[in-house]
Every structure is written in structure tokens, then in C-alpha cells.
């Protein structure tokens, strides 16, 4: 355990050193070294610029994500539960392979380049993993659990609420986690394509590109990575807390 940690630290140090050497050798202002990027990152953090951009980005993600949850979650559960609704999965399967970013042109035509269009892209990104995970979770409830409920006198409604949904919980939560991750990636891409109000992490790195500030671009990228990592970690932690009954969770 300890040895593995030492190894990991060593790998990171090696990577940073390699990066510094390459940056030194290339000697271009478009390839800043780790120390310069680190300094810029600290400066942006201290000045509050990074936080300002991050908060706006997060607000967009939360809005789109929640919208997706409110629509995709009940729809997925309903589709998994009702045999007639199951056939709707044909349409879902057709729409799902379309990358969320391919919706950007339509989003711009329908909603312009403001808040709504970003929320729409995020919504699309988060929608399908949430939908398909809740759908599969419900549909794959073992039939003997449903029959066990039935012989104990549970009505259809009680079986859905007290057996099927709790049993699908791990799958649903995983869908939420994957959905949020994709939403975050979509957001940054959506912000790159243009904005009405000039804030957001995607905007920050685009603007820095225009000014040729590669260190700011990289600092922005790091911020995006860190926030994505934290969101994923928080949701995974919640998942493990909430589905303690599942066992063999890592």
C-alpha cells in the first residue's frame, strides 16, 4: 500500500520533470512548463477569476443536469416498468449514439448562444446515461423479487415503490454519476462555441487562446479536470454510502 503510494508520487514527479524538460527544450511561449502553469493557476485562484468562471460553469451544469434528472429518471423507470413503454427504447437507441456535441448547431438555431442553449447541450449529454441506467435497472429486477413481493400481498404500486426502485438504486445512481460527468464535458465544449455573457471556464480558455496565453489555457484545463474529478468522487462516495447493502463495492 505504502509502496504503491510512493510509486504514484514518483510517477507524478517524473511526469512533471519530463514536462519541464520538454518545455525548456521547445522553448516556445505556447509550451509553458509546469511551474509557470502552476504560478498562473495560483494567481487566477487568488484573484478569484477562476472561481468566478467556475461558478458560472457549475450553475449551467447544475441547471442542465437537474432538467435531465427530472425528465430522464421518471421516464426511464416508467419505460422499464411498463411493458408497453419498453418499445419506446427503439427511439432512445436511435438517438443515443448521436454525440451531444452534434446537437450544438441545432441548439444554436433553437436557443441562440445564451444560457438556454448551453443548458440544452448539457441536458442532452446527461439525459441518455440517466435514462438508460434507470431503464435497465428497473427492467432487470429479478422476477423472483417481484413475485416475492406479490405473494406477500404487495400491489403493483407497492412493488414498484418498495422493491423495484430500491433494487435499481445502484444502477440509477451510477447513471446520475455518468450523466454528471458527461454533462461537465459537454459544458466546456458548449462554452467553447460562443457565449453571450463572457464567463465560464470554457470561455476562459478560449479567450486565453485568442491572446496566445497558453499558461492560462492550461490552468483553465486543470481547473476543469479538478472540478470534474471532485464531482465524480463526491457522487461515488454518496453511492457507496447509500447502497451499503450491495456489498463488493470499491
Amino acid at each position: 500500500m505504502n509502496q504503491m503510494r510512493t510509486q504514484k508520487v514518483f510517477i507524478i514527479l517524473f511526469f512533471v520533470a519530463l514536462w519541464e524538460i520538454v518545455a525548456y527544450a521547445v522553448n516556445s511561449r505556447f509550451v509553458p512548463g509546469p511551474f509557470q502553469v502552476g504560478r498562473t493557476f495560483v494567481q487566477l485562484t487568488v484573484s478569484g477569476d477562476l472561481a468566478e468562471h467556475a461558478v458560472v460553469s457549475l450553475a449551467r451544469v447544475v441547471a442542465g443536469f437537474l432538467l435531465a434528472v427530472f425528465i430522464a429518471l421518471p421516464l426511464g423507470i416508467f419505460m422499464g416498468w411498463s411493458p408497453r413503454m419498453e418499445n419506446f427504447s427503439v427511439i432512445v437507441e436511435m438517438l443515443r449514439p448521436i454525440p451531444p456535441l452534434a446537437w450544438i448547431p441545432l441548439a444554436m438555431l433553437w436557443f441562440g448562444i445564451g444560457f438556454q442553449s448551453k443548458v440544452f447541450i448539457i441536458f442532452i449529454g446527461a439525459f441518455f446515461p440517466i435514462l438508460s441506467n434507470s431503464f435497465l435497472g428497473v427492467r432487470e429486477t429479478p422476477p423472483y423479487l417481484i413475485e416475492a413481493g406479490r405473494v406477500l400481498g404487495a400491489t403493483d404500486n407497492e412493488i414498484l415503490r418498495r422493491i423495484v426502485i430500491p433494487n435499481s438504486f445502484p444502477s440509477i445512481l451510477e447513471g446520475l454519476r455518468i450523466g454528471l460527468g458527461i454533462a461537465w464535458m459537454c459544458l466546456v465544449a458548449a462554452e467553447l462555441t460562443g457565449l453571450k455573457s463572457p464567463v465560464g471556464l470554457g470561455y476562459l480558455i478560449m479567450e486565453a487562446r485568442d491572446l496566445g496565453k497558453a499558461d492560462v489555457v492550461m490552468a483553465g484545463m486543470i481547473a476543469i479536470g479538478v472540478i470534474g474529478y471532485i464531482m465524480n468522487a463526491v457522487l461515488r462516495w454518496t453511492e457507496n454510502k447509500l447502497v451499503r447493502w450491495k456489498g463488493d463495492q470499491t
Binding site: Y144, E158, R162, I163, P166, W245
Partner: peptide, 28 residues
Amino acid sequence: RKIGYVFQEFSLFPFRTVKGNMDFGLEI
């Protein structure tokens, strides 16, 4: 209601504890 049933499969509700499983029919 006069009939109880034990399945061939391991059919306990995995998300309920031992107590919770026994309680299910009573709650219903």
C-alpha cells in the same frame, strides 16, 4: 393471505436487512 411462499432462488430483498425482510409483509 393464508399462503406463505419460499422461492427456489435466493430471493431476499438485497436492500433490506434481515429485520427489514421479515418486516416486509407486515408493512404491506
